[in-house]
C-alpha cells in the first residue's frame, strides 16, 4: 500500500510532525506488543513447551517396576523400542495404515476439490463446503460410534448384504475398518486444502492446453498437477500426520488386538505408568512422522523441479 509509506506509523502523533513524538521523548519504551502477546506466549510455554521438555527428560530416565521412575541418563527406553519386535510392528502398522489412508484420501479428495472449484456455481460451492466440513467437527467419538454401527457384525453393512442374499463380511476389528474410519476423518481436510490451491490456478492455462489438443488426462498431469503440487503436498502431510496420531479410531474400530502408536503411548503413560518408556514412544512417534514427511516433501519437490525443466 502506498498510503502507508506517506503516513506516520500509528503509534506516533501524525499531526505535529515537527515535534518529536512523545514516545520517542520518553526514551526506548517497551513495545506494547510485549504486554499484548506476553500472556499468550507464557501460557503456551508453560502448558506445552515446558511439559514437552520435562517429558523428553523423563524419556531418558529408567523405569523400575514398583519404584516407578529412577533418575538416570540412559537411552535404554529408545533401545527397547528399536529392539522389541512388538513395538517395531506397532510402528510398522501405524505407518502403513497412515500411508494407505492418506493415498485413498488423495485419490477420493482430488475429484471433489476439482469439481468444487471448476464446476460448482457460487451458490452451491459454500454449501457443499459446509457439508464437507461439518462431519469433521462432530468429534471422533461420535463418528467412531457411527462406524461401529455400520461395520459391526450385525451392522448396517452386513444387514444390507443379507438383504441382497450375500454372506456377511467380518469388518469390525480389522485393519480395513480402521482405514475406512480414518479416511472418513481425513477426507474433509484433504478436500478443503486441495480446493484452496486449485482455486489459485488460472483456468485459462487449462483451456489453453485443451485448445492445443491436450486431452483432459494430459491437462491434469501436465498443467493442474504440477501447479497444485504445493497443496497436494500440504494436504498429504496433514492427513498423514493426523492418521499417525489417531487415537479413537484404532482403539474402538481396530479392537483390542490392533495396535497403533498413539493408543500405545496412552497405555504406557496413563495405564502402565511407565513414563520413561511412554515418553520415548511419544518422541519416536513425532520423530518418525517428521522424518517421513520431510523426506517425502524433499523427494517430491526434487521430482517436481525435474518436471518443470
Amino acid at each position: 500500500m502506498s498510503a502507508s509509506t506517506v503516513k506516520a506509523p500509528s503509534d506516533k502523533v501524525p499531526l505535529d510532525l515537527e515535534l518529536p513524538a512523545p514516545r520517542a521523548r520518553a526514551g526506548r519504551r517497551v513495545s506494547p506488543a510485549v504486554g499484548l502477546a506476553g500472556p499468550a506466549t507464557l501460557f503456551v510455554l508453560l502448558a506445552l513447551v515446558a511439559p514437552l521438555a520435562l517429558m523428553f527428560r523423563y524419556s531418558l530416565n529408567r523405569f523400575v517396576p514398583g519404584q516407578l521412575m529412577v533418575e538416570a541418563l540412559t537411552l535404554a527406553n529408545y533401545q527397547k523400542f528399536f529392539t522389541d519386535s512388538f513395538y517395531q510392528e506397532v510402528l510398522g502398522t501405524t505407518v502403513w495404515v497412515s500411508a494407505l489412508s492418506t493415498a485413498l484420501c488423495l485419490l477420493a479428495g482430488f475429484p471433489v476439490a476439482y469439481l468444487l472449484v471448476r464446476h460448482t456455481g457460487p451458490k452451491w460451492k459454500p454449501r457443499l463446503l459446509i457439508l464437507i466440513i461439518l462431519p469433521l467437527l462432530m468429534g471422533n467419538a461420535v463418528r467412531t460410534a457411527a462406524w461401529m454401527v455400520i461395520l459391526g457384525d450385525k451392522g448396517l453393512f452386513n444387514a444390507s448384504l443379507q438383504v441382497l442374499g450375500l454372506s456377511p463380511l467380518k469388518l469390525m476389528y480389522t485393519p480395513t475398518a480402521v482405514v475406512i474410519g480414518l479416511v472418513s476423518v481425513m477426507l474433509p481436510f484433504m478436500i478443503v486444502t486441495l480446493q484452496s490451491v486449485i482455486e489459485g490456478i488460472d483456468e485459462n492455462l487449462e483451456s489453453a492446453a485443451a485448445s492445443l489438443g491436450a486431452s483432459h488426462g494430459v491437462v491434469l498431469r501436465r498443467v493442474v498437477l504440477p501447479l497444485a503440487l504445493p497443496g497436494i503436498l500440504a494436504g498429504t502431510m496433514l492427513c498423514f500426520i493426523l492418521s499417525m496420531n489417531a487415537y479413537a479410531t484404532p482403539v474402538l474400530i481396530g479392537g483390542p488386538s490392533f495396535h497403533m502408536m498413539a493408543p500405545t503411548v496412552y497405555q504406557q503413560v496413563a495405564k502402565a505408568m511407565n513414563w520413561p518408556f511412554g515418553a520415548a514412544l511419544a518422541f519416536v512417534l513425532m520423530a518418525v512422522t517428521l522424518v517421513l514427511t520431510t523426506t517425502a516433501n524433499v523427494l517430491v519437490q526434487r521430482r517436481y523441479r525435474r518436471w518443470s525443466e
Binding site: A47, A50, L54, Y58, A262, V269, W275, A279, A282, M286
Partner: peptide, 14 residues
C-alpha cells in the same frame, strides 16, 4: 501441530 496424545501425555506428567 503437536499431536493431541503427545501433548496430553506431557501435560498429565507435568
Amino acid at each position: 501441530i503437536v499431536p493431541g496424545i503427545v501433548g496430553g501425555a506431557a501435560l498429565f506428567i507435568a
